[in-house]
Amino acid sequence: MSDQPFRYRVYWEDTDAGGVVYHARYLAFFERARSDWLMAMGFPQVPMRERDNRLFVVRRIDIRFVAPARLEDELAIRIDVEHLRSASLTFDQHMHRVGDEQLLATARVDAACLAADRFAPARMPEDLRTAIQQQQQRDKQ
């Protein structure tokens, strides 16, 4: 779904004593990319919560670690929407190292849309759903 990957640098705070990215930090990089993806689509999360009373929560995440990311690597994360429903979506994310394009990790993320005031399932904003559908159509061409 993302035409251009979202890029992030690995810093000391992301690594263990050996300079390898700590496994839990992969979650943070994947989360950051999804947040940046929403902003790039024109739907930052704070206005969506305040204006539309909507937010997204992760229901499930499956990560497959392929190769280690290391200190000072530049990471590129691509995002595709695998399934789109009225109140949920499934993301397929791929993390590569910039330069050698080595696949480092993949994540499949099930996210639910909630009414922010009740934390109950709710339809996502129609304009966001339409924007995702339009992007999916462009990706198929």
Results as ranks from 00 to 15, higher is better:
residue 51 R to A: 04
residue 95 M to C: 06
residue 79 I to F: 05
residue 78 R to N: 12
residue 104 L to V: 02
residue 63 I to T: 05
residue 115 A to T: 10
residue 114 L to Y: 01
residue 59 R to P: 03
residue 117 D to W: 06
residue 15 T to H: 14
residue 40 A to H: 09
residue 88 S to K: 07
residue 123 R to N: 15
residue 26 Y to L: 06
residue 88 S to P: 08
residue 91 F to K: 00
residue 97 R to K: 05
residue 110 D to V: 11
residue 85 R to W: 10
residue 119 F to Y: 11
residue 66 V to R: 03
residue 15 T to Y: 01
residue 115 A to R: 04
residue 110 D to M: 13
residue 94 H to E: 15
residue 71 L to N: 09
residue 45 Q to G: 01
residue 81 V to C: 02
residue 119 F to G: 08
residue 96 H to D: 12
residue 94 H to C: 13
residue 79 I to W: 10
residue 112 A to G: 15
residue 99 G to M: 11
residue 48 M to L: 13
residue 10 V to L: 00
residue 15 T to K: 09
residue 62 D to M: 13
residue 95 M to R: 06
residue 111 A to S: 06
residue 31 E to M: 10
residue 109 V to A: 05
residue 9 R to A: 11
residue 76 A to F: 03
residue 123 R to Y: 14
residue 55 L to Q: 11
residue 83 H to V: 08
residue 68 P to K: 05
residue 90 T to N: 06
residue 68 P to F: 09
residue 14 D to M: 01
residue 61 I to V: 14
residue 55 L to H: 11
residue 76 A to R: 03
residue 83 H to W: 08
residue 55 L to F: 04
residue 9 R to E: 11
residue 113 C to Q: 06
residue 60 R to N: 03
residue 89 L to T: 03
residue 52 D to S: 08
residue 87 A to Q: 12
residue 45 Q to S: 04
residue 47 P to I: 00
residue 109 V to T: 06
residue 121 P to F: 12
residue 93 Q to N: 01
residue 95 M to W: 12
residue 6 F to D: 05
residue 53 N to M: 12
residue 96 H to Y: 02
residue 67 A to P: 13
residue 30 F to M: 02
residue 70 R to V: 00
residue 118 R to F: 10
residue 106 T to N: 03
residue 77 I to C: 03
residue 75 L to N: 07
residue 108 R to A: 02
residue 124 M to G: 09
residue 16 D to H: 02
residue 44 P to V: 02
residue 77 I to W: 07
residue 62 D to P: 07
residue 84 L to N: 09
residue 122 A to R: 01
residue 21 V to Q: 05
residue 60 R to W: 07
residue 94 H to K: 14
residue 33 A to N: 13
residue 90 T to W: 09
residue 120 A to C: 13
residue 36 D to Y: 12
residue 39 M to I: 04
residue 30 F to V: 01
residue 79 I to V: 15
residue 79 I to H: 12
residue 85 R to Q: 08
residue 29 F to P: 02
residue 15 T to V: 04
residue 58 V to Y: 06
residue 41 M to L: 09
residue 64 R to S: 10
residue 130 T to N: 07
residue 112 A to W: 13
residue 12 W to Y: 15
residue 55 L to G: 10
residue 110 D to P: 07
residue 40 A to M: 02
residue 32 R to P: 05
residue 78 R to S: 06
residue 58 V to W: 02
residue 115 A to M: 00
residue 69 A to T: 02
residue 125 P to T: 01
residue 5 P to F: 10
residue 105 A to G: 00
residue 95 M to E: 12
residue 48 M to V: 12
residue 84 L to A: 00
residue 49 R to Q: 15
residue 76 A to P: 10
residue 86 S to K: 14
residue 6 F to E: 05
residue 91 F to H: 04
residue 30 F to Y: 13
residue 47 P to D: 07
residue 128 L to H: 01
residue 13 E to C: 08
residue 75 L to C: 04
residue 20 V to L: 09
